[in-house]
Simulated scan of single mutants.
Amino acid sequence: MKKILSISACVLTAALTQVHAQAQNNYSLYVSEGTSGGLDAAQVIEKYTGLSEVMGKALGKKVTVVVAREFSQLEEGMKAGKMDFVIARPSDYPARGVRDYKYQLVSTSKPDGQCLLIVPKASPLNSINDVKGKRIALPEKISYMSKFCSAELTHKGFNLATEKIQYAKEQGAVLFYLDNQLADVGGIASYSGVAKNLEKTGHRVIHSSQLQPYQPLIAHAKITPAQIQSLKKELALLTENEAGKQVLKQLGIKEFDTASNDQRLRDLLKWLG
């Protein structure tokens, strides 16, 4: 019996050693689609698999996609340095990763992000100057785009404490508020599915906010400058071949901006307040 237990212990130790070795040979890519993604974990992994393969080619190691479902998981993971790479649509999280947790910016995604103020086509409102005093619908208060739109309104002279702002559960619900005359104007993300279908849904844009970095990809401090450059090179080449274009299409972006710099992320956090 002792001999059997000894053999079992040896097998377990070997298995754990192998798992640890595999972990050492892999990198993790944590992904957050924010509150507007609308995809389940399996769909997110499928969406980012092409990118992980491109990254793996540049780094010479397998890159495994991990879905960060909670913002707290994303924040704590970066703070503890447990995440090798992070790509997130709520850009304030990677921005804090760079500013507060010593992560390095690899790239942002094009086009940049904006808050769009939209109204029904028949609305008499035509510019942001017409919005003061009107009923404004924004995505849920904790969402990045709600913070983004609120920052834009503040920078345009709105006092949010006195404006008639209401929060919808998600960006799609902003249209419900407009269509049912529960709000006069709505705020949505330029990169959202809602924004891509405004012509079909019968809405128009009356104001586009300041451009800000979209979906930053950041790397842990342990990733070397040579690895960062190799990664940037592979990402920049995606627009030059069909396979690369398919990866970009899958991600829903035009290209990776590998010339973007840390200061844009730091400025974004200041702008958000």
Rank of each mutant, 00 (worst) to 15 (best):
L217D: 03
V11Q: 00
T108Q: 06
V54E: 07
Y30W: 14
Y93N: 01
I45H: 09
V205K: 01
L51F: 02
K79L: 07
K196P: 03
K222C: 00
A23I: 04
L265Y: 01
A15S: 08
K82D: 13
S109M: 15
G187D: 13
A42T: 13
G252R: 02
L116I: 00
S146G: 04
R99F: 10
A168M: 15
K245I: 13
L198T: 00
L217C: 02
S260Y: 03
D257N: 08
K82C: 07
S143Y: 01
G133T: 05
C115S: 03
N159D: 15
Y30Q: 12
N197A: 13
N261I: 11
G172C: 11
Q22N: 10
D84H: 10
L125R: 06
G193D: 15
L198M: 03
E255D: 12
A226Q: 14
D40A: 14
W271T: 05
K156E: 15
L178T: 04
E53S: 08
D262K: 14
F158W: 05
G97Y: 01
V98K: 02
L182Y: 14
A173I: 05
D179A: 12
K270C: 04
I228S: 02
P94E: 09
L29Q: 06
V44F: 12
Y101Q: 07
G34I: 09
L272G: 06
L12Y: 00
L117K: 01
K249I: 08
T258A: 07
P111C: 05
I118L: 05
T13V: 15
G187E: 13
T258I: 15
A42E: 13
F176K: 11
T224M: 09
A137Y: 10
A236E: 15
V54A: 05
N241Y: 09
A14Y: 04
K134T: 01
Q215F: 12
A23G: 08
P111S: 06
D262A: 14
S190L: 12
Y191V: 13
R69V: 12
G157P: 01
L269W: 00
V247L: 02
I228V: 15
I223R: 01
G244N: 03
S72E: 13
G172T: 11
I142D: 12
E140L: 12
R135C: 00
G133F: 06
Y144V: 07
I253H: 09
G77K: 06
I142P: 09
E255A: 13
A161M: 14
L29I: 14
D130L: 13
